[in-house]
């Protein structure tokens, strides 16, 4: 997995609540058997019209946000289906950090597994960052995962919370499966005792 340490980049404002995974990557793009190449269809139905032409008003089509690496959004971001294609598309587009007042559970977890940092902050703080993002491409934010800070284009530093284990894995780019396999003796002994106590499983 790609490491996430610090990131300085343009933040795109998306002040919508309940952005669901169907919006992030519509189902017609789920038929791939690969993880890559989904960025061109990120937010497809909001980004392109029926003929495939760009909708100029959509934030990621605006010149100043085309290479955004951070997304600032409304409450309950990533709700809906468990499709990991959503974080794959976000990452493939080039976005490595999403900031919102809250996230749907599965999406939130999926981000960490793909080197994306989701940051949940109180609404008032997200409002400040949303305003900052609205300034366009000269307003670059800096995210420092080690220090757990976001620095706005004005130099204001905001701290955020992150689960220590998830932080560690992101900073080091650690693969969960490898980590778990180190505990295989625990799994073995769980399995043998469960075979006694719940043999029907």
């Amino acid at each position: 997995m790609d490491k996430f340490t610090t990131l300085t980049g343009v933040a795109a404002p998306m002040p919508l609540i309940n952005v669901d995974t169907d919006m992030i990557i519509p189902k017609q793009f789920l038929k791939t058997i690969k993880r890559s190449g989904l960025g061109k269809n990120l937010f497809d139905e909001m980004r392109f019209d029926d003929d495939g032409a760009e909708i100029p008003d959509f934030v990621l089509n605006k010149p100043q946000y085309r290479s955004a690496e951070i997304l600032v959004a409304g409450d309950n971001f990533g709700c809906g289906s468990s499709r990991e294609h959503a974080p794959w598309a976000i990452k493939d587009f080039g976005i490595r950090c999403v900031i919102a007042p809250s996230f749907a559970d599965i999406f939130f977890n999926n981000c960490f597994k793909n080197g994306i940092l989701p940051i949940a902050l109180p609404q008032e703080t997200v409002d400040i960052l949303m305003k900052d993002a609205e300034k366009g491409s000269n307003a670059r934010m800096t995210i420092d995962l080690e220090a757990q800070t976001i620095t706005t284009s004005e130099g204001e530093a905001i701290t955020f919370e992150v689960d220590p284990f998830k932080k560690h894995c992101l900073l080091e780019g650690l693969d969960d499966i490898g980590l778990t396999m180190e505990k295989s003796t625990n799994i073995d002994s769980f399995e043998s005792s469960a075979a006694q106590s719940r043999p029907w499983v």
Binding site: P87, I106, N109, N110, K113, D163, D176, T180, M181
Partner: peptide
Amino acid sequence: HGIGTSEVEHVLATQTLIQK
């Protein structure tokens, strides 16, 4: 509960899930 594809791979390989 539902899981993402990385977790599917994790369960396939280890029959466990990392959870809080």
